[in-house]
Design a binder for these strands. Structure first.
Lengths: 194, 194
DNA sequence: CGATATCTATGATCGCGGTCACAGAAGAGA
DNA sequence: TCTCTTCTGTGACCGCGATCATAGATATCG
């Protein structure tokens, strides 16, 4: 997988971890040992019991812990997953030794920061419909068919809705002709945007 | 202002910009010219017409544009504001030349990422009371008196509530004996937490 | 200093979405 | 295959918080 962090970590040999649903990758408060890349499946990061972020395939997690002594969050596999663990010390040494790679890492963090901020503003939208449309738009459903990679009920929780409200809103959007569905997880927002 | 990005940019001379409400700092699609620090006021970043982030005083914005050719977002002043523009090329040269500063910049981005994710956690809490208590706790109101630095109505919007609901929730917490107030902006959470 | 805008605050009403309840569909495992 | 779990989906009810209305308290500015 040509993930956008590929160049950053290509010089480091990761430890591969194969996880079952619910397996713990790291616990909040533990010493930081590594930065992780999701190869397959999903990993939920939670803080005080509530999910803060869901790491998708092709993304890193634990990036913020790289610069601190202890992990700020719990990381638990959502369903079967495969992650690569890149030892913290190797990564830090590598970044220090390769300024260009370091720049690329900063760029990667900046992109993730943007995504997180977009999610915050999404959460502030009032009304289930606005949030669902915003989510689908961010996912690219306005440019053509997209296929979401996780259960709709998880998405509902991610955008701060119950699954019931989410399903009802999807139906309403379809009835309005704004949204088309293909199977259970295929979506296409058509309608007078842009 | 001793912002936590101070050390990163201290070697670069910014261009000061004084803005009125609605003034455009940068437009999506334009060539990137600088990274910005908000000295005063607020700057709204939007993409495809919807707000992605509101930059507060003491924070940077345009960090992601630093690594690309063109701006990904519009930036418009929300009310009168003062921002410092640090020319992109100077910042890039500076970071390339000083690996340790580059690491510090990565660490800054990682901290912001953490903060953003904590905010996501807060936004997902259900119920006005839970969100208000979470906000006050994050602000340190469980450790003693704190004084918030912005109008309560703005805080209400930040945590996804109307100001009316926010005021009512504060009152309810005071009635319950969980919260004490000192003047309009002083708060202290007492009660069996921890 | 007085005029004006903003902030803080509370009450009444109403609609959205959470909760509860139920069920078919799909997937996992034996 | 059959069982069991999870996911997807819909309906009924009702409580929380958005909205509308109003007003005193503060802040701002000429």
């Amino acid at each position: 997988m040509a993930a956008d962090y590929a160049k950053i970590l290509e010089g480091i040999t990761p430890k591969r971890m194969v996880l079952a649903d619910g397996d713990v990758v790291m616990r909040a408060g533990e010493r930081v040992s590594a930065i992780f890349a999701v190869e397959n499946g999903h990993v939920a990061l939670s803080r005080h019991g509530s999910v803060v972020h869901v790491a998708d395939p092709g993304t890193l997690f634990g990036e913020s812990g790289l610069f601190s002594e202890t992990n700020p969050v719990d990381a638990v596999a959502r369903g079967p997953a495969v992650v690569s663990a890149y030892p913290q010390e190797h990564v830090l040494l590598f970044l220090r030794a390769h300024p260009e790679i370091n720049m690329a890492f900063s760029a990667y963090l900046a992109r993730r920061l943007n995504a997180a901020r977009a999610r915050i503003e999404l959460a502030k939208l009032k009304g289930a419909e606005a949030r669902v449309v915003a989510f689908l738009t961010q996912a690219g459903a306005a440019q053509g068919w997209i296929k979401v990679g996780q259960p709709l009920s998880h998405i509902a929780a991610d955008i701060g809705l119950t699954h019931e409200a989410f399903y009802r809103t999807l139906r309403k959007l379809v009835d309005k002709g704004v949204l088309e569905r293909n199977g259970r997880r295929g979506f296409w927002l058509r309608g007078g945007n842009e």
